[in-house]
Each structure stands twice: as structure tokens, then as C-alpha cells.
């Protein structure tokens, strides 16, 4: 299934299944999911809403327990949330009662002051929010807030960043800018990114591999490698062909 070679695999999902108990019967959300993600890889989970892609991400993040199967990161099973793999939520999760500075500081509170301040400075600069350090995040625009969420995640130097439709709540122009921004940060820091989206264009622009999921029960329908160097030419025939292919895969999985 286009798995990365065994020795540099970062996240390994094996035989994963998730059943939500409802009155009497169970709702199978994920069924027989196998996925291996290499260190430094950018993988998009693409699928219609209700296909279990967010549930998969939540299990990898340690927020939910699988019914069957296992998730290991660097060979160790995931038992709970951990600062080494940071989740970026669609609703940001940036604290409105704290300033940009304090939001980024939240994961760095055990560092010596000088080191912490240097790190915060670096990431404020990285997301281009210099001058907004003292601004409360409730006063920021959606795009700025999402950048703070990303900076806050990057600041703890995680191995893995799990993004659950992080651009879903933004307007299309800001979304577009944020994609470039995320790519720039990823190329700089080279962490592993798992990015949940239902936007075909987004997945083709960002990912090394697109994992297409089918709904009810959530299964991996196809894995499509995007073998194009960044920055990708969004108007090129190859790009358009990949989009068409993904749309076809999605509509096929819909029809099943």
C-alpha cells in the first residue's frame, strides 16, 4: 500500500477498528485500518464527512482508544496525549484568555526563562505575528489564530503534528495563504504531518501521499502518492490529473 520502508516508519497503525456503542447495536466507524507513515512525511487523510478520518486522528493523538488494533509511534504504543505529538484543532483550541505570547508559552512552561523567551520569539517571527505578542488571541482574526495554534504546536518541537481540518473554518483566501505557510514551516522543520481534510485541492497541494478513506465503515480506499516537488504548479496538467483521480476515487467510494 505504498508504505514507507520499515526502518524510518514513524507512525504505524495496525488492524485498527473503532466501534461506537449506540443503544443496542454498535456503529462501526473504523474497520481494518492499516497505515504506516514515515518520519518527515506529509500525509493527508482525505474523505467525506463521517468517514472516520477525525476519529482515526484522535486515536493516533491518544484522545480516543481504539476498539481493536494498535497505534505505535517510534515503536511505542500510544496511551494518551503527549507533547511529542501535537494536535491542531479546526476550532484552534487557542486560549482566548491568553495573549499570543502566553499561548505559545503554554507548552514551554518548564524551560528556563531565557530559552523559553528565545523560542517564543522565534515562533512568533516564524508565523509573522511580530508586534502581536501581547494581543489577546480573542482579538485576532481566524487566520492569525490558526497561525498561533500552529506556532504553539511547533514550539514544543513535536515529532508529529496532527491537524484536524485546521483550515476548515477560514475563508478561501486565508486558507490558501495558510497552505503555503504550513508548507513553508514543514519544509523548514521537517516534522511528520498527518492532515485531515475533505478538500481535494488542499490534499494535492500539500501531501506527499493522500490516503483516501471510504465511509461507513471507515476504511482506506486508496493511497495516492503525489510525486511533485514543492512549490507545486497548481495549473499544471499533472496536478489537474491527480485532482481528477482523487475526485473519481471519492465518488466511487461514495457509490459503494
Amino acid at each position: 500500500m505504498g508504505d514507507a520502508t520499515q526502518n524510518d516508519s514513524k507512525v504505524v497503525v495496525r488492524g485498527l477498528g473503532k466501534v461506537f456503542e449506540r443503544k443496542g447495536d454498535g456503529l462501526v466507524v473504523l474497520d481494518q485500518v492499516d497505515l504506516t507513515i514515515a518520519a518527515g512525511e506529509f500525509v493527508c487523510l482525505l474523505g467525506p464527512s463521517g468517514c472516520g478520518k477525525s476519529t482515526l486522528l484522535n486515536i493516533i493523538g491518544g484522545f480516543e482508544k481504539p476498539t481493536v488494533g494498535s497505534v505505535t509511534i517510534d515503536g511505542a504504543p500510544v496511551v494518551g496525549p503527549d507533547p511529542r505529538r501535537v494536535f491542531v484543532f479546526q476550532e484552534y483550541g487557542v486560549f482566548p484568555w491568553a495573549s499570543v505570547w502566553d499561548n505559545i508559552a503554554i507548552g514551554l512552561r518548564h524551560l528556563p526563562r531565557a530559552e523559553r523567551d528565545a523560542r517564543i520569539h522565534r515562533y512568533v517571527e516564524l508565523i509573522g505575528l511580530e508586534g502581536f505578542e501581547k494581543t489577546y488571541s480573542s482579538e485576532l482574526s481566524g487566520g492569525m489564530r490558526q497561525r498561533v495554534a500552529v506556532a504553539r504546536a511547533l514550539a514544543v518541537s513535536p515529532d508529529v503534528i496532527l491537524m484536524d481540518e485546521p483550515l476548515g473554518a477560514l475563508d478561501s483566501l486565508t486558507r490558501f495563504q495558510m497552505r503555503t505557510e504550513i508548507l513553508r514551516l514543514w519544509q523548514k522543520e521537517r516534522m511528520t504531518i498527518l492532515f485531515v481534510t475533505h478538500d481535494v485541492d488542499e490534499s494535492v497541494q500539500l501531501a506527499d501521499r493522500v490516503v483516501v478513506m471510504s465511509p461507513r465503515p471507515g476504511r482506506i480506499a486508496a493511497v495516492v502518492p503525489i510525486d511533485m516537488p514543492h512549490p507545486r504548479e497548481l495549473g499544471s496538467p499533472a496536478y489537474a490529473a491527480l485532482k481528477t483521480k482523487l475526485y473519481e476515487l471519492l465518488s466511487v467510494t461514495h457509490a459503494v
Partner: peptide, 14 residues
């Protein structure tokens, strides 16, 4: 409290 805040906080080891 919206659960997203508590989840974020736990994620950062609080």
C-alpha cells in the same frame, strides 16, 4: 468549558 481547550491543555502535558 469547550472540550477543545481541555484537550489542547492535556496535549501540552498540563
Amino acid at each position: 468549558i469547550p472540550s477543545v481547550y481541555v484537550r489542547s491543555a492535556r496535549n501540552f502535558g498540563l
